[in-house]
Write a protein that binds this DNA or RNA. Structure first.
Length: 360
DNA sequence: AATTCGGGGCC
DNA sequence: GGCCCAGAATT
């Protein structure tokens, strides 16, 4: 397998010149800030989800200096709903580090040392923004490589082997002349031809060199180790409203799940349930008249399924509680998805109360 | 080496 | 309902 000939970079580049995706971060002059931002947003996130958020982010933070100078609260609000919030924290820290040194470094090693930039993103920025002849290995490249070389070893164990095989592609002159286009061509090949299911091998510029296709096992690659089952966790949250219709939000601890983001106060999330008496001890003002809203909000995280119920109360004038008072519409935009679902639950309960459902 | 991090789109 | 997505940091 390691002795198989390299698939021709020239064929892939020729295909890319005709079929590449029109993506917004490919339009402008090569700006490391814009390319870095796209790469961070695209970590474990689809192009469709990223595209509008990437545009909006650049309107709010047009330069890395603007991002570096912004308060964290503004960055968090802009990232809300995108997930993996450590990315936003590291993005902010990275912007400050880059601004302090007057621009991005242009080598893999220096990029790799910045917050939130791992092996993949360092190689991607180096190749796409600075034309360095390196191959970033993402899910697309792993899949293309596993199929091309018929690697049957399971992920994640096969990762070093796949990375080594992929890096050899950049040895060709045609690739080294256009590193930025070549690596993006690999992404597009994986996203549009060499797809996880039902790959369009008949349209592939590398079909003749693909050992997985020759063996008829391409669609089943790469193989992956079985995943663990996701437990269910339960939590109770508190919707405290003041006389002006605003709600109490609290900034979550800076690390861990939803770290640094706003949220409704609540109990910890655990696998056993909560009695109302037990839950209320976590309330921002346990002495108030808390009552339960009907229904629950569900939210899927990567490693557990969360089910949340809601207790609500009215804050008397002058109540002293920690946190911030937010209008519901502004809060909905600034909250991560799990917390947005709680507000939707409250809205549904309010609609139910004002217009009781009829039978039939 | 394994775990912890979100959320959405698509089959 | 499961799978995947231009992964990184932590332990």
């Amino acid at each position: 397998m390691s002795s198989s000939p390299l698939p021709p970079a020239s064929a892939l580049l020729h295909w890319y010149d005709r079929h590449r995706r029109a993506l917004p971060w490919r339009e402008a002059v090569r700006d490391p800030y814009r390319i870095w931002l796209s790469e961070v947003m695209l970590q474990q996130t689809t192009v469709a989800a990223v595209t509008p958020r990437w545009r909006r982010f650049l309107i709010r933070f047009p330069s890395i200096a603007a991002l570096a100078a912004a308060p964290w609260e503004d960055v968090a609000a802009e990232w809300a709903g995108l997930g993996y919030y450590a990315r936003a924290r590291n993005l902010h820290a990275c912007a400050q580090a880059v601004a302090a040194r007057n621009g991005f470094p242009d080598t893999v090693e220096e990029l790799r040392a910045l917050p939130g930039i791992g092996a993949y993103t360092a190689a991607a920025v180096a190749a796409i923004a600075f034309g360095r002849p390196v191959v970033p290995v993402d899910g697309n490249v792993e899949r293309v490589t596993a199929r091309l070389h018929a690697v049957e070893e399971e992920l994640p164990g096969a990762r070093p082997r796949l990375s080594g095989l992929a890096s050899r592609w950049m040895e060709q002159d045609a690739a080294r002349e256009r590193p930025s286009d070549f690596v993006q061509a690999l992404f597009d090949l994986g996203a549009t031809i060499c797809t996880p299911r039902n790959p369009a091998c008949a349209l592939c510029p590398w079909q003749a060199e693909c050992e997985g296709r020759r063996q008829g096992i391409a669609p089943s690659l790469p193989r992956k180790a079985p995943k663990r089952d996701r437990p269910t966790r339960l939590g109770v949250h508190f919707l405290l409203r003041d006389g002006a219709g605003r709600m109490l939000l609290q900034r979550r601890p800076p690390r861990g799940l939803l770290g640094g983001m706003l949220g409704l106060p609540g109990t910890p999330w655990r696998e056993s349930g909560w009695t109302p008496e037990e839950a209320i001890t976590y309330a921002p003002a346990p002495g108030l008249d808390w009552h339960a809203l009907p229904g629950e909000a569900r939210h899927g995280f990567t490693h557990f399924e969360l089910r949340m119920t809601l207790l609500t109360a009215e804050a008397p004038p002058g109540l002293e509680v920690g946190g911030e008072w937010w209008r519901p519409d502004a809060a909905q935009d600034a909250l991560p998805g799990a917390m947005q679902r709680l507000l939707l639950l409250a809205e549904a309960a309010a609609a139910m109360a004002s217009r009781p459902p009829r039978a039939g």
